[in-house]
Amino acid sequence: MMRKFKKISLGLADHLVLIAISSIVILPFVWMITTSLKPPKLAFAAPYLIPTHFHWQNFVNAWHEAPFSRYYLNSIIVAVLVTFGQVFTSALAAYAFDRFEFPLKKTLWFTLLASMMVPLPLLVIPSFQIIQHLHWADNLVALIIPRCWSAFGILLLRQFIHSIPRDFDDAAKMDGASTLRVIWTVILPLARPAVATLALFAFLFAWNDFLWPLIVLNSPEHFTVPLGIANFSGKYGTRWTLLMAATVSATIPAVIAFLAMQKSLIRGLASGGVNE
């Protein structure tokens, strides 16, 4: 039976479609790499997709102007801590909203959900004034703490926790476990797919964020990857080959990291069965 199933899902046509879409998706990367290896005068000359020059000096110059290893470290610190922060606060809040009754519950729930619709640029200046009062300006803390909660995360985890029978909680509580312990040892492991989804979403958001770090950070040693790249195109002319060398430097490690982690990521997202 399995063989027949496989036969249906596999096919040459599928492969052709996949190859076609993949080549479109991969196009910018090919172009990026080729251009990053051209001498500046040939930045706009053919060939565009197959590297024929190997002008490594672009990379030397790009790294000389911008310490990418530092940017990477900052981006990783921020993204990892934001991810853990969101999972932590969302798990606690989601559990409370699902399992307990308390005054103002409905109002609070509605308010949190509504906050998902707030346009972010609106908050930039007032938020920054708060950061200033806390003396967090030009400090990675300002990128981390305010982002350590997520209305979407609470929504996602609450939905998932709702599908976990209360018997599990009760059994653990009979053994004398505290509420926190129930969440850590019973609920979170069972909710792993939802947690993994939230973690991925939070990580990517923090990783790509541009406007807020721009406003908050002043010292180049605190810059994250997107800020580091933005500095290569300016009012007085863009240096394309350098910019591309910077972009390649900023992209390749992230792709390799995904390649290494994708199996566990998929397993994390999948296990337990999304379709309860």
Binding site: F88, A93, F102, L123, I145, W149, T179
Partner: peptide
């Protein structure tokens, strides 16, 4: 007691929400 536990659990997210979203909003 249930309400108290619930509020304690919500507190981290709620405080961040009030401080960094609701207030600036």
């Amino acid at each position: 007691r249930q309400a108290r536990t619930a509020y304690l659990l919500i507190a981290p997210a709620l405080l961040l929400f009030i401080g960094f979203t609701a207030y600036p909003f």
